[in-house]
Design a protein around this nucleic acid. Structure first.
Lengths: 138, 138
DNA sequence: GGAAACGATACGCACCTGCGTATGATTTGT
DNA sequence: ACAAATCATACGCAGGTGCGTATCGTTTCC
């Protein structure tokens, strides 16, 4: 019985299961998946311009504008001109955005914790490391 | 440094990387991702009706018809009436479909092998088992 | 045996997505 | 200083996606 599914299919299945479990949590906090991804990326601090942000999260740069508009309207992020390059805008979390992200992140982690139940710490470590390897190889 | 990305984000990243690597391989064999998923599912033998097939691969049942039409037109699968329930159609791989699937599956596995380079057999085992666990829990 | 459920199919709709194009402001390279 | 590249933004288009609805033949269940 070589069950041997494609790795891609396994990733897709796990990803879908996680997304389905996390969807309601995001909804409770009034955020869409992409809005959360933006907040998380900004919280991580690794995005300078809007273009860089779009590339980092693999989101269409022309539609990122509307996404950010929504977050700005909710007071979760700000768009300020970059003093060193006045073409670019620097996107930053507001204090309210920081709080919102922290709250949602904790809720998300609780959901993941539940989905990971039954896996040893070592298995979890290997899982994360292997997924990171797959995402960054080649 | 609690890099600690969301598991969902990690799965998405790994899945995207695999899909990007496998896309060209599928194209070389003249198959779309969904066509390959159907072939693989049929090869696995675990689908009776078209409805069951759609649910198994999480594909919209109303659009599965056109997908199957394409595969039938290419002579890779057949749609025959189920003798035990004349409403249902049994979808089967043709000999040509079996060969096509085997060829693509081998090519896909070679790609995955390359992406997995650097992971020990034990790590690969844990990865597969953990992903399966995530996909099937709850 | 008649009503309700079910499978395959067709069709339309609303949304999301990636992609190309355009424009204005600003920076960079020569 | 002038041309070319760059960033944010707007707009549209073609394709994919899930979802609801309808029809037709068939099966199930009282």
């Amino acid at each position: 019985m070589t069950e041997d599914d494609d790795l891609a299919a396994l990733c897709a299945g796990a990803g879908r299961a996680l997304a389905e479990a996390e969807g309601p949590v995001l909804a409770e906090h009034g955020l869409s998946m992409w809005q959360y991804v933006v907040l998380a990326t900004l919280a991580h601090g690794s995005a300078s311009s809007q273009l860089a942000l779009a590339q980092q999260i693999h989101y269409d740069k022309t539609r990122l504008i509307a996404l950010l508009d929504g977050l700005v309207a909710e007071g979760l992020v700000t768009r300020s001109p970059d003093p060193s390059d006045r073409r670019a805008r620097i996107v930053r979390l507001t204090p309210s955005g920081i709080r919102r992200h922290a709250a949602v992140r904790d809720a998300i982690r609780a959901v993941e914790e539940r989905k990971l139940a039954g896996l040893s710490p070592e298995e979890r470590r290997v899982l994360r490391s292997a997924l990171t390897h797959l995402a960054n190889s080649d």
